[in-house]
């Protein structure tokens, strides 16, 4: 009766016939994944992969299943092979200045992440310039300037209600003039359903490219870790507008698991680079796949 109602009942039964994984294990797995915001589609995919794997290389108990499971989920998370950010915040092998444009929906944690990034880079002796490209939200420029002070970096701003593309342009220009290592551009929060605001992002990019054709080297999409399935649509729409190259997941210091990034990383092949774990300057970490998967299974 219970299994008939279960979304994955069918898959569960299929596995039961072949090996020692019982339905309870799979039910529990399903609950864990769903409650971590992994989503029905990706959860089905993961369970299917486990089913296949189990059918192929027999196993003996749930502890082995556990490692198979972790393995299968980890492979869905795209590895960040592109650049040298993987194990640290080093910038030695990157073009100079390395221009990062930060985008995302309202309140996701963009400005805070920029402040933390600036701190990580300066801590390593790098020269950083920030561009206050959110000229819209009340006191957004002041917020970034405060972070600039904390991290001890220069913030280029044109004040509120000015053209964000011009700010980005000037920040990149300043970065080149100062021989900076990294330039990070803040942008106003925008919902991906707002066409004009999404077009504005392309414009910001175009204008900075007039000065530095390769810029931005990176478009960092910031996702709130407590966001549910809408994050998938955010990833799709921001990628369409700006060719997102990396993800940052914030607010993982709470009880939300951020599981939605598993499907996103797999579907759009965008690596997760950073996670935010607090509101302090040091609360930014380089994403670690194994650790992230582990955290899904922690109560």
């Amino acid at each position: 009766e219970k299994s008939k109602e279960s979304i994955f009942g069918k898959i569960s039964r299929a596995i039961v016939g072949k090996s020692t994984v019982d339905e309870d294990v799979l039910d529990e797995l399903e609950d864990i994944l769903i409650s971590s915001d992994v989503g029905v589609g990706t959860t089905v995919k993961i369970i299917k992969r486990i089913e296949e794997r189990v059918a192929r290389d027999k196993y003996t108990g749930t502890s082995e299943l556990d490692s198979i499971l972790r393995d299968e989920i980890a492979t869905l998370l795209t590895e960040n092979k592109s650049l040298d950010f993987k194990d640290s915040f080093e910038t030695d092998n990157l073009p100079k200045p390395y221009v990062i444009m930060v985008v995302g929906v309202n309140g996701a944690g963009k400005t805070t992440t920029i402040g933390k990034l600036a701190h990580q880079f300066t801590k390593r002796g790098k020269k950083v310039v920030l561009g206050a490209g959110d000229t819209f939200r009340a006191a957004a420029v002041d917020q970034l300037k405060t972070w600039g002070q904390r991290a001890g970096v220069l913030v280029i701003d044109h004040g509120m209600n000015t053209d964000p593309a011009a700010v980005a342009h000037d920040a990149v220009k300043k970065g080149v003039e100062m021989n900076a290592d990294v330039v990070i551009i803040d942008t106003a929060g925008r919902l991906h359903t707002k066409v004009n605001l999404m077009n504005e992002l392309s414009k910001i990019k175009r204008v900075m490219q007039k000065f530095l054709p390769e810029a931005p080297h990176e478009v960092l999409l910031v996702l709130d870790g407590s966001t549910g399935q809408n994050a998938v649509i955010q990833a799709r729409e921001f990628t369409k507008a700006t060719d997102v190259t990396a993800l940052a997941i914030t607010k993982l210091d709470g009880t939300a698991k951020g599981g939605v990034v598993i499907g996103i990383s797999d579907e759009f092949k965008i690596p997760v680079k950073y996670i935010g774990v607090g509101e302090k300057m040091d609360d930014l970490q380089v994403f670690d796949r194994a650790q992230f998967v582990d955290s899904l299974f922690k109560k």
Partner: peptide, 12 residues
């Protein structure tokens, strides 16, 4: 509450 919140909304 942010309407985009996922499964964790109940805990919070």
């Amino acid at each position: 509450v942010d309407s985009m919140t996922g499964q964790d909304a109940v805990n919070t």
